[in-house]
């Protein structure tokens, strides 16, 4: 069990030579599937952001992220930042904004969305776009 806020800022190292390639900046999610699909890393030297597929990760530990391969995935989905985005029910009613996200670091499965009004279970997620996270009405 881990929070997006805890994962953000972790150093990212390659498994082969433990070289620090950058820090974890953001996690890209597939909202309907309820999983983290990609992580975005800010490179240490170039300060540019690059994208790693979830499958390229060895582990997200409490102190560091280990990656098997720093290769850029062929297909990168658009990134919508989940923390801070407004939440709408499918009936069109606002539920505040996303404060944090609880996920399983082993599998990338999202467990819950943390809001000011309490936690939303991941099975209520319908879609995440440029405007809002849409959830099933509870």
């Amino acid at each position: 069990m881990m929070l997006f806020s805890q994962a953000r800022g972790l150093p990212v190292r390659t498994l082969t030579d433990a070289e620090e390639i950058g820090v974890l900046k953001a996690l890209t999610v597939d909202a309907p599937a309820g999983v983290v699909t990609h992580v975005r890393v800010r490179r240490r030297h170039s300060r540019k952001e690059s994208v790693l597929a979830w499958g390229a990760l060895q582990a997200i530990g409490p102190d560091t992220v280990l990656v098997r391969s720093a290769a850029v995935p062929s297909e990168v989905p658009p990134h919508h930042e989940l923390p801070g985005v407004r939440i709408l029910t499918e009936t069109g009613d606002g539920l505040g904004t996303v404060q944090d996200v609880v996920f399983e670091p082993e599998t990338g499965r999202i467990e819950a969305i943390r809001t000011a009004h309490g936690d939303l279970p991941a099975d209520r997620l319908l879609g995440l776009g440029d405007y809002a996270l849409v959830v099933r009405a509870g």
Binding site: L88, G127, G129, D130, Y131, V134
Partner: peptide, 10 residues
Amino acid sequence: LPVVTLGGDV
């Protein structure tokens, strides 16, 4: 009022 898809795009 915004018109929003279930995918979260306005």
